[in-house]
Amino acid sequence: MKIMPCPLNGERNISEFAYGGEVLDLPAPDCDDETWIDFVYLENNTAGVVREWWYHTPTAYWFIAERDTRTDEILKTYPANEVFKDRVDFAAPEAPAAKE
């Protein structure tokens, strides 16, 4: 059983966590269909270090882990607000998503 270092709860068995997918930028709501479909359905399947969402189920806590998919080594974990610092809004249909 793998150990996941949780930023809130410390080292825990991986069975206490759920995987939430790669950390991706949400495309602008008015992006072209190809971009949207790529975002919704296609995985990058990167061989290397990826940023991933993980969820500690007992505390309902989402955080981010950097993991090397070649070795399954978890390099570091940190709270989501280290990446997502600002409020995101969807102002008007033509405006791009505010984040990055």
Binding site: W53, Y55, A80, N81, F84, R87, V88, K99
Partner: peptide, 20 residues
């Protein structure tokens, strides 16, 4: 549903609290 709401608000940072 709860998990999904927390997931998105971890990114959106709205002034809202969701409690199950």
């Amino acid at each position: 549903v709860y998990k999904e709401m927390l997931f998105w608000n971890a990114q959106w940072r709205l002034k809202v609290d969701v409690t199950n």
